[in-house]
Design a protein around this nucleic acid. Structure first.
Length: 488
DNA sequence: ATTAGGG
DNA sequence: CCCTAAT
């Protein structure tokens, strides 16, 4: 036990942080879940605060995860993923099944599912477990939670012990879960820790009520999902709801379902958690979705950070100060749309946020620059001719050039000769420009000379002439650089 | 840090 | 436009 806690503590920080992200994900996933997750976060924070003490159990996902991880060194990861996955799934499906229990469902679920996991492990490893559960629970003296924890402790301890003796695993789990659940509940609701009697009674009541709360739950969900946009409000609702729910104990079937669900199909998709953990773009997306939902002001801040970080667009800002003037025909502004984190709303499509049309004058400048400095000297061109255009990066110039080539048809006269469709060109370039582009294209074959590649490939396939094609047909590498050299 | 390529 | 790999 002791060691467990230690490891837990040590791992707690990292894990927790990670978890935080993960938690952030689902938040966006489901409106109704919103509140619940928020709770999770709160719990998390508390966890941090009490880090010194130990990792409690029923506190929240974060903690639980930490513990689990530390417990199961090897499958720790998997486990975590699974758990989280489960969580996510749970959230995902708030609409169906138990999730109707929605708020409480999801949140309790996490807790007790986790606990189940934990319990299982414990059971497997041996008899000393019972105390473990108790200890860890009691050791988590978080200010607001301590009470409930204590309350739960008693039960979990006793029940666990008993059952262990009787070797009735399922029951044990059930009980533990139940207890845990209560603990979690209370802590979340900030309610007074009921006496053991109270718990007992509550459990019973829960059982009874469980069958009829569907409508109720639905209602509650509805409230939440149609929510008012104030998170606090939501929270209070949830709180209320939870309070109400608090008296209800999940039926055994419910628990079983949940557990099976978790262990079952959860395995299949671990991608979710993983992705969400690292994939920032994903996060952003969610964030956007979130915004679309139009609610939640407080959580946004959290997101904003990431958003801003990402949004700023690769190193562009650092270069030069936004100038507005430059080309006469340029779009007026260059400064406004940029990186206001505040402009999130519009960031619906993260990608391609700032599109700036290339004006003819720009194109001309580009062409001039290319003809002057040569293809490939994009930074130079940018520096010399586009120094005022903060938004045009060398890469952009290059891209534009590529597009020009394409548009001018100078690029690879396709095999069949069916190309050069300028036909669908929205903004046909001035013929003069076109001419120039073509000429330039002739002079500097930027586009990796398909020619060589083509010819190379064509001949290479069979046997390839070493001399002719320069050797490596597949990798454009050799061909590329070589070509370039020749040209220059 | 720049480029080339690909998406 | 954006992203990644290669230089």
């Amino acid at each position: 036990m002791v060691k467990k806690d230690e490891s837990c503590v040590s791992a707690l920080e990292d894990e927790a942080i990670e978890v935080e992200h993960l938690l952030a994900e689902p938040k966006n996933e489901h409106v109704s879940v919103d509140g619940v997750l928020s709770f999770g976060e709160e719990s998390l924070e508390k966890c941090f605060q009490i880090e010194d003490f130990s990792c409690g159990f029923g506190f929240g996902l974060a903690l639980n995860n930490g513990c689990l991880d530390s417990n199961t060194t090897q499958e720790g990861e998997d486990l975590q993923l699974e758990v989280l996955d489960g969580l996510l799934d749970e959230l995902d499906e708030v609409d169906d099944l138990d999730a109707t229990n929605g708020l409480s469902g999801a949140c309790d679920c996490e807790d007790f599912l986790l606990d189940i996991e934990f319990a299982e492990k414990k059971l497997d490893s041996g008899p000393s477990e019972a105390t473990c559960l108790g200890n860890s629970s009691s050791e988590s003296p978080s200010p607001g939670l301590s009470g409930s924890c204590n309350g739960a402790v008693g039960i979990s301890e006793s029940s666990t012990a008993t059952i262990l003796e009787s070797e009735c695993k399922n029951d044990v789990l059930d009980k533990i879960v139940t207890c845990k659940l209560h603990g979690g509940f209370m802590s979340k609701c900030g309610c007074q820790p009921p006496a053991e009697d109270g718990i007992h009674m509550a459990s019973i009541e829960l059982r009874k009520l469980n069958d009829l709360d569907h409508d109720e739950n639905l209602l509650a969900c509805g409230i939440l999902s149609t929510g008012t946009g104030k998170r606090s409000l939501e929270v209070s609702r949830i709180d209320e709801f939870l309070r109400e729910k608090r008296l209800r104990k999940p039926t055994r079937r419910y628990i079983e379902e949940s557990s099976s669900k978790k262990s079952g199909y959860l395995k299949g998709r671990e991608k979710y958690p993983v992705a969400s953990t690292k994939d920032t773009s994903l996060k952003v997306k969610s964030c956007n979705e979130l915004h679309n939902t139009g609610r939640r002001a407080s959580t946004v801040i959290h997101e904003e950070k990431s958003l801003c970080g990402i949004r700023v667009r690769r190193g562009r800002p650092k270069k030069l100060v936004p100038q507005s003037g430059l080309d006469s025909d340029k779009e007026p502004l260059s400064s406004e749309s940029e990186d206001n984190c505040a402009t999130k709303k519009k960031s619906k499509h993260d990608r391609r946020k700032h599109q700036r049309m290339w004006t003819p004058s720009e194109v001309i400048k580009l062409v001039d620059g290319i003809s002057e400095y040569g293809v490939g000297r994009w930074t130079d061109i940018k520096r010399l001719l586009f120094s005022t255009s903060a938004y045009r990066t060398p890469i952009d110039l290059r891209d534009k050039w590529r597009n020009l080539l394409r548009a001018s048809g100078a690029e690879k006269p396709n095999k069949k000769g069916v190309e050069q469709k300028q036909e669908h060109s929205l903004r046909p370039l001035p013929s003069s420009l076109l001419r120039r582009v073509r000429e330039l294209a002739k002079i500097h074959p930027y586009p990796r000379v398909r020619i060589s590649k083509k010819s190379c490939i064509g001949q290479v396939v069979p046997a390839m002439h070493p001399g002719a094609c320069k050797g490596a047909p597949p990798s454009s590498l050799s061909g590329r650089s070589v070509r370039r050299k020749n040209i220059t």
